[in-house]
Design a protein around this nucleic acid. Structure first.
Length: 508
RNA sequence: GGCGGCGUAGCUCAGCUGGUUAGAGCAGCGGAAUCAUAAUCCGCGGGUCGUCGGUUCGAGUCCGACCGCCGCUACCA
């Protein structure tokens, strides 16, 4: 059973999560669930980035200590992710001892293997406390960082520890070009390649007068720069430096936002190479959720809160909408109109209705027992299912979640067409019982398969549908390989509920 | 400033190395059906393929310029 270690970016602890955060976690969770369905031994990590200047400020505003503040934020974030059905196996916070230990160990290892990769030098520049970065050029507009126009840039000059990033340009570039390190989608890879081709400067990796951070080894005056610290979380969670971390490392996939590719695709692999550790195998940089075409960021304020979006139709519907409509590669729009449209046409009318009408017919025509299918006739639905599952797998293997969701939905639509073509109620009237058995059994198999295919996207609904069949195997233990012959024939099936009710009709 | 991407039916988008009447989904209109959440199924899309030129027997599909968005990047007063 191949292992699959995937991670999401860890979030800053300075405000409530919004739809953009949610897209990333849901997408990563979808991938994690899909890999489990494939039979991989999945390890899925999420967590919080808690060492930053903004934490001190936010804590001060709230009148609490930084630790109390990050504790509160961690609970808030984790609660949202639970509501959104994230199936992470671990939850790391950069204030945990296991993380500090790993950061210290990694720096020690770099110093041991490549002593001159770490050196001291003077740095001078304008520092943005929002980004935790020094800013230059077009990143500064009207004297403020373009990402954080409400914050003042701090002129800073200090002696810091540096990492000889420039030395690793060729090594990182080679790995990206050869595919050993996959940066996706392609547009992000091209950007990173061009960045590398342009050359790299060495980077400062420590800060003075920044007590809220991990002490820099052998230098009590300094703490580890928050970005350098944060990236290491992926390694900390493997148990590094204790023996056994190699069971998880290297990460198979880092899921991140497109805004932090430089850190994950350039600096992070270079850090690992300097320590003679394997770089990650892949990074997927998703796009942003926009609000009617405009940027929606935590600093700029959001047009819709995550809580509102979840409460509108429930977690499953939001997951589906974000992954299908907004998408996991490019930027996409969140609008209530599109959300409503997807909910009704896809979830309610196509999938929900298919489940209901199929199983209701099994109740009306066969007393709630899925008939045995003699398989004496051609079965167009079986062919459609085989094709759809193959296309679904191709898409999901490439992290094309929109396409995977589309394949699932297309199969449901095909099954609806099948019902119109075969007209089961006419078969009933005409007394063509054998044919009716074949149709109803085929529909039951298809519904069962659809429940499995949508599990990465809408896990709660998938489980509810799967459970209707009173199956011997819980959905969590079902594998894609079992889809050829779902064990539903001859089994009693429960009365199907209305899966995605329309509030519009209930209130009318 | 450099590099790159996008601009195709009301909406979201497919259209690979140029070649029959430019496609899908949603919405809308008409019809069928009644197992089902008035759900489903069938039929209906004449859109200057951002603009203007060019290459070609032939261009959303290649080249150039321009317009409008957007991304990455640059020690630009």
């Amino acid at each position: 059973m191949p292992k699959f270690y995937l991670t999401t970016a860890i979030d800053y602890s300075n405000g409530d999560p919004h739809l953009g955060h949610a897209l990333e976690k849901i997408g990563a969770d979808c991938i994690a669930r899909y890999r489990r369905l494939r039979g991989d031994d999945v390890r899925f990590l999420m967590g919080m980035d808690e060492h930053s200047q903004s934490v001190i400020q936010a804590a001060a505003r709230a009148g609490v200590t930084p630790q109390a503040w990050v504790d509160r934020m961690a609970v808030s974030f984790a609660d949202y992710w639970r509501r959104l059905e994230c199936s992470n196996d671990d939850w790391i916070r950069t204030t945990e001892p296991r993380h500090a230990r790993a950061v210290t160990a990694l720096l020690g290892r770099i110093r041991a293997r490549h002593p001159d990769d770490l050196f001291e030098a003077e740095y001078e520049g304008l520092y943005c406390t929002g980004c935790e970065e020094f800013k230059t050029g077009a990143q500064i507009v009207n004297g403020h960082c373009i990402e954080h126009p409400t914050l003042d840039l701090i002129p800073t000059k200090e002696r810091n520890h540096f990492f000889r990033l420039s030395r690793y340009r060729d090594a990182v570039l080679d790995r990206i070009r050869s595919g050993a390190f996959a940066v996706e989608p392609e547009i992000r890879r091209n950007e990173v390649v061009r960045l590398l081709e342009a050359g790299l400067q060495d980077i400062s990796i420590s800060r003075q007068r920044q007590p809220w951070g991990i002490p820099f080894p052998d230098d009590a005056q300094q703490t580890v720069y928050v970005w350098f610290d944060a990236l290491i979380n992926y390694l900390s969670a493997t148990g590094f430096p204790d023996a056994g971390y190699e069971r998880l490392w290297p990460a198979d996939l880092h899921v991140i936002g497109k805004g932090i590719t430089r850190f994950h695709c350039v600096i992070w692999p270079a850090m690992l190479l300097a320590a003679e550790l394997a770089p990650p195998r892949a990074v997927w940089a998703h796009g942003y959720v926009q609000w009617s075409g405009a940027k929606m960021s935590k600093t700029a304020g959001t047009a819709v809160t995550l809580g509102e979006a979840i409460d509108h139709y429930g977690p499953d519907a939001l997951r589906y909408y974000l992954l299908r409509e907004v998408g996991f590669a490019n930027d996409g729009d969140f609008t209530w109109e599109r959300f409503d449209a997807r909910y009704e046409s896809d979830l309610a009318n196509t999938f929900g209705n298919l489940v209901k009408r199929s199983l209701d017919m099994i109740h009306s025509f066969r007393g709630g027992i899925v008939p045995r299918d003699p398989r004496t006739r051609a079965a167009p639905l079986e062919d459609a299912a085989r094709t759809a599952v193959a296309a679904y797998q191709r898409a999901m293997d490439g992290y094309e979640l929109e396409e995977g969701a589309a394949q699932w939905m297309d199969l449901a639509a095909r099954a609806n067409r099948y019902i119109q073509e075969t007209v089961p109620w006419e078969l009933r009237k005409a007394g063509k019982e054998t044919e009716l058995d074949a149709v109803l059994a085929g529909l039951a198999r298809t519904v069962a398969r659809l429940a499995v295919l949508c599990q990465p996207f809408i896990p709660a609904t998938a489980d509810a549908v799967w459970t209707l069949f009173g199956p011997p195997t819980p959905l969590a233990r079902v594998r894609l390989a079992d889809l050829g012959e779902p064990a539903v024939e001859g089994r009693p099936v429960a009365k199907p509920p209305i899966l995605f009710p329309k509030p519009r009709l209930a209130s009318a």
